[in-house]
Design a protein around this nucleic acid. Structure first.
Lengths: 172, 172
DNA sequence: GCAAATTAATGATTTATTCAAG
DNA sequence: CTTGAATAAATCATTAATTTGC
């Protein structure tokens, strides 16, 4: 028996995208099978969601999502998972914006005197720096590594987040 | 031999605060010896730290702390351990807030249909619901709790957060 | 003006980390 | 130390904007 369509409480389904490749005017395209269309929020719905977000809502729980879905259903087709995803994405992307802003702030703040390099804090640069992933390092690690810190530091050029990237000649 | 002053990579030392008790105007006070005063973050420093926190930084590693410290040093005296502790404390306290908020959340927002109470969605109320971070509730819990929801709803009379307050008379 | 082509936004999924309970 | 639950980050996929050549 093949597992029946798994779906959690909000209707999220794993590996659900059924696509069919074909060509349209000499271009290979993928067409969703089964009339699959993604949710396209109405202006009304977005307004409500943003209001909630501004009001402080970030990760609504099941009950909240049900409630919101019910409400937004009045303005167009919508499912719980749409609400769930909306908050996930909106939160994440707001955070990205903030992070980028913070870095800009910092890099401008801190480099009081780096005219040459300071000038190109472009979107790309920030995107590169954004990668502040969660790091594996624990304090234990750090302490153990203390001896080898120099090495580590040198090796971090590409791996670690550069907090204050604009450093001219490596003052100490 | 007594162990020499232990200090980790950031200069943290155990039991390093040398205090001396004395009386000042009939009050017993403890005065730090050797001009020791605890770090008092400047507004600038806090702004930067909070920006980093919002940006996702939680437990900076040695290199990052060095970098941050160096940077914040431009806005006032500061050591690596201050940065370390700030993140520890800030993370912990944010988590506390969120834990507290989660409790409120559960009791508040489940109310599926309570027209009378629906009128006040204030920012504070939303802030309470905001965090719901690492909630203790699992999806399973939520579902199980569905049965007992009524109880929760009845207890919410004074806490009241309503998501969609503007519901005239329960139109559809 | 208009579609095709391209790019930017954003919805939906997958993967990696974190926290804390056992 | 291991593991389950939750979720944040990264990524994939599709739709909307926008550009571009006619």
């Amino acid at each position: 028996m093949i597992a029946p369509p798994p779906a959690d409480v909000f209707g999220r389904v794993r590996n659900a995208t059924k696509l069919l490749s074909c060509t349209v005017r000499n271009h290979i395209v993928q067409v969703p099978v089964g009339g699959t269309t993604r949710w396209n929020p109405s202006a009304e719905q977005i307004k409500v969601l943003e209001a909630l977000y501004r009001g402080g809502m970030r990760t609504p729980n099941a009950a909240q999502i049900e409630r919101i879905t019910e409400e937004l259903g009045k303005h167009g087709r919508i499912e719980g998972k749409n609400v769930f995803y909306w908050f996930q994405n909106h939160k994440a992307r707001e955070r990205q914006k903030q992070k980028r802003a913070a870095l800009l702030t910092l890099s401008t703040l801190d480099s009081p005197s780096l005219p040459e390099i300071t000038t190109k804090v472009t979107k790309e640069a920030c995107d590169d720096m954004t990668s502040c992933k969660r790091r594996r390092t624990t304090w234990g690690d750090v302490q153990r590594d203390a001896a080898t810190t120099e090495l580590a530091v040198h090796r971090t050029d590409d791996v670690t987040l550069e907090l204050f990237p604009l450093r001219p000649q490596g003052k100490a």
